[in-house]
Nucleic acid binder design. Structure first.
Lengths: 152, 152
DNA sequence: TAAGATTGATACATCAATCTTT
DNA sequence: AAAGATTGATGTATCAATCTTA
């Protein structure tokens, strides 16, 4: 499957993708920090834990869910633990493993921050697209994510 | 314009956007480092300088073009200068200003790296979308980038 | 020997001063 | 006083060991 060099038009779409991501995430991160003293990375961890069964995930599972490196996650969880948002728990079946568990304080922080954050997502991103375009975008992104292309 | 909380479907598109960005840029960055010892951030600087008139830009212009912070850029240009890819030049009209100029070595590095990188973009991103979808994606991203939403 | 997680060294980003020129 | 850029302090990410258990 020889994929050649893309045309200028295709590259322009790729660049727009990069720029849109940078602008929107920068704005959302700044908003979260200002209003709730919560970096977007923390918010992302809180979301993934809140959706996991029992509000907890193995460190490695969380690392891949959250799009951060294994070693980066150790420190990130350190910080969040010292703020009381998560707690580490040993794993019963496998003494090597650790869980990160959402604390009530962490869940509360997520609940406080989520409404404004989601309104921000709507204002800056989804709200700019009519339903039809949004569905098309979803389909396109699904193609990018599907098959091949595993996590490194 | 009261933008409310987005539906679950809309949020799913937003998350797919985040995940697609993370996966594709991670893979492209790793490829560039392996094959040309060139981080994606450096590549981005090289591209912007190569497209600027005279192959040079004021630091502040480059900073906003390249989606990095002003202060982050100073150090980034330090590193790239010590590798010989760019050179600083004082600004004639305004003694406060500095230009970053692409050197021949920087231009050569970009020329070497670009073909494989662009093939990677096509393989991981644009090549997964038929023309019609790609154009739709481009239009959607344009809407996200247009109006409002300036750089912070 | 490999998997899960942490640690140490290092690179990079970010924010608030700072310094110079306008 | 404000703009352009750099510096210093600090926070965060990344990579290669390391340690423990499977």
């Amino acid at each position: 499957m020889a994929s050649g060099t893309p045309s200028a038009e295709r590259i322009a779409v790729w660049r727009a993708f990069l720029e849109a991501h940078a602008r929107v995430t920068d704005a959302l991160d700044a908003d979260l920090r200002e209003s709730h003293d919560l970096p977007l990375t923390w918010y992302d961890v809180l979301v993934h834990l809140s959706e996991a069964p029992g509000g907890r995930l193995r460190m490695a599972e969380l690392a891949s869910a959250v799009l951060f490196s294994r070693s980066g996650l150790t420190r990130l969880i350190d910080r969040m633990e010292s703020r009381g948002y998560v707690r580490r728990e040993p794993c019963a079946d496998d003494a090597r493993g650790m869980f990160a568990r959402l604390t009530p304080a962490g869940r509360a922080a997520l609940r406080r921050a989520a409404p404004a954050h989601l309104r921000g997502v709507e204002r800056l991103f989804t709200g700019r697209l009519p339903d039809r375009e949004l569905r098309a975008l979803g389909a396109a992104l699904k193609r990018v994510l599907d098959d091949g292309l595993g996590r490194r």
